[in-house]
Write a protein that binds this DNA or RNA. Structure first.
Length: 303
DNA sequence: ACGAGCTCCTGCTTGC
DNA sequence: TGCAAGCAGGAGCTCG
């Protein structure tokens, strides 16, 4: 039904919002928020505003009467400039969504609701409560203070690949860890890191300081390409009748080559994709295309 | 200053 | 059948 929003994952467990999903949400929100004035805000779960230091009551009070402008994004952070000095910052975390509110919408896990002066309303829905909203001042460049520490993402007009390559190679860690470090380049999560590494045939345990410029450049470029493809698919799935503001990258299944494909044949060489524990999560890679480093600095790997 | 590891959270899946 | 453990993972935090 028009005016409602379909569910986030459609059974796809890969619903975690990374840069393309967040950008899709931003584009969906833009025409909805621009020029609307908040009549009231309601915090249903205090954890959703835990990054708003002054607390839920202050959050609600300060939002009232504010007129919203076009949302902006860096990496996986969204923020909405408003009249006045501060901005509304949103992070979707693992499961955050914005949904158009209405009597026909029966959604559990509504954490925050915003109602506008024209009666229109949206909900911030977040099952796992890793996401949240806050009101924050902005730093000198117009970026919220909590976002200022992360690096530019590869879609930013000021993004400089050479500088990103420098930062990546300056780290003293494994390349996958560095790709997930939002202060190096923002926007890359576990899924796109694995896909980028598969594309360029690098094992995630390769040490950043031993990557050539060419290798570092290739993996960053690959990450951008995978995210660009997902963004394109998310964009084409837009339907003005059913405004998608929920982080679903549409019908695109992200054409994943490695992530989540344990035991399936590698699309390049046919070797079974392997899953490996990685800091409380998983890494997926082709053991043939992505050879692990033979020698670690102090530790020898097994075969 | 930097890097590693832990923690927060909920619902689905798997194993006993 | 029912319960418990495992798994998913972004980012802030602490510790070395």
């Amino acid at each position: 039904m028009a005016g409602t929003v379909d569910c986030c994952c459609g059974g796809n467990r890969l619903g975690v919002p990374e840069l393309p999903e967040v950008e899709t949400v931003r584009r969906g929100l833009a025409p909805i928020l621009l020029g609307r004035t908040v009549a009231s805000a309601e915090v249903h779960h205090p954890r959703a505003v835990r990054r708003h230091k002054a607390g839920p009551a202050d959050f609600v009070t300060r939002l009232r009467g504010r007129t919203l402008q076009t949302p902006k994004r860096r990496g996986k952070y969204l923020w909405v400039p408003m009249d006045g000095d501060d901005v509304l910052v949103a992070h979707l975390g693992m499961s955050g969504q914005f949904r158009l509110s209405g009597p026909s919408v029966t959604t559990p896990h509504i954490r925050v609701s915003l109602t506008f002066t024209d009666g229109f309303a949206i909900d911030f829905v977040d099952q796992r409560t890793f996401g949240g909203l806050s009101l924050e001042p902005v730093a000198a460049d117009g970026v919220p203070v909590s976002v200022a520490h992360i690096g530019l993402d590869s879609f930013d007009k000021d993004y400089d690949l050479d500088r990103a390559v420098q930062r990546l190679r300056a780290r003293r860690t494994q390349v996958k860890r560095a790709l997930l470090d939002q202060t190096v380049v923002s926007g890359i999560g576990n899924i796109y890191a694995d896909e980028a590494l598969w594309l360029v045939g690098l094992h995630g345990e390769r040490l950043t300081q031993r990557l050539s410029r060419r290798q570092a450049s290739a993996v960053l470029t690959a990450a951008h390409q995978v995210m660009a493809a997902a963004l394109l698919a998310g964009g084409t799935s837009f339907d003005s009748q059913y405004v998608r503001v929920n982080g679903n990258a549409g019908s695109f299944d992200r054409s994943l080559n490695a992530y989540g494909r344990e035991g399936e044949p590698c699309q390049r060489c046919g070797t079974a994709i392997r899953r490996q524990a990685f800091t409380n999560r998983s890494s997926y890679f082709c053991p043939r295309c992505q050879q692990p480093p033979r020698l670690r600095q102090t530790t020898r790997r097994g075969p």
